[in-house]
C-alpha cells in the first residue's frame, strides 16, 4: 500500500484531529489534510486528490453521516474509502452508516491498533 496516500481527517475537535494525524504519521502516512466539519471537507474532497476519508459523526454544520451520503452520491467520490471514527455507538446509527456505504466504523475511545487494523482492512479490500 502506498504510504504517499492522501488522507483527509474530519473532526470538529482539533485535539482529535491531531491525535489521528499523529497516528497516521506513525503508520507512515505523512500526507494528511484536515477539516473541521462536512461543509469544509466537501470542497476539499471535490477538488480531488484525497484517497482516504476519516470522519467523525457528530459535528456542527454538516455531520459525518451527511458527508458520507454526499460522498456516495457524487460520482467522482462514490468509491472513496470512508472510515467513521466516532463516539456515536447506537446500534441503529451503526446500521445507518453501513447502509449509507461506510467502509469501516471505529468507536471512540479507540486504540492505535484498532485504527491501524481498520485502515489496513479497508485498503486490503480495495486492493482485492
Amino acid at each position: 500500500m502506498s504510504k504517499d496516500m492522501k488522507f483527509l481527517v474530519v473532526d470538529d475537535f482539533s485535539t482529535m484531529r491531531r491525535i489521528i494525524k499523529n497516528l497516521l504519521n506513525d503508520l507512515g502516512y505523512q500526507n494528511v489534510q484536515e477539516a473541521d466539519d462536512g461543509q469544509t471537507a466537501l470542497p476539499i474532497l471535490q477538488a480531488g486528490g484525497i484517497e482516504f476519508l476519516v470522519t467523525d459523526w457528530n459535528m456542527p454544520g454538516m455531520p459525518g453521516l451527511d458527508l458520507l451520503k454526499a460522498v456516495r452520491s457524487d460520482p467522482k467520490l462514490a468509491k472513496l474509502p470512508v472510515l467513521m471514527l466516532t463516539a456515536e455507538a447506537k446500534r441503529e446509527q451503526i446500521i445507518e452508516a453501513a447502509q449509507a456505504g461506510v467502509n469501516g466504523y471505529v468507536i471512540k475511545p479507540f486504540t492505535a491498533v484498532t485504527l491501524k487494523e481498520k485502515i489496513d482492512k479497508i485498503l486490503e479490500q480495495r486492493a482485492a
Binding site: 466516532t86 451503526i94 468507536i107
Partner: peptide, 29 residues
C-alpha cells in the same frame, strides 16, 4: 435526531441499544 448524532454514550444515562465496545461494532457490521 440521528443525522446529527447523540454524542458519547454515558453510563446510566443513555437509553436504547448501544454498542459498548469495538467488538460489538465489528460483530454488528
Amino acid at each position: 435526531g440521528m443525522s446529527r448524532g447523540f454524542g458519547p454514550a454515558v453510563p446510566g444515562v443513555d437509553n436504547g441499544p448501544s454498542a459498548s465496545s469495538q467488538d460489538d461494532v465489528d460483530s454488528l457490521l
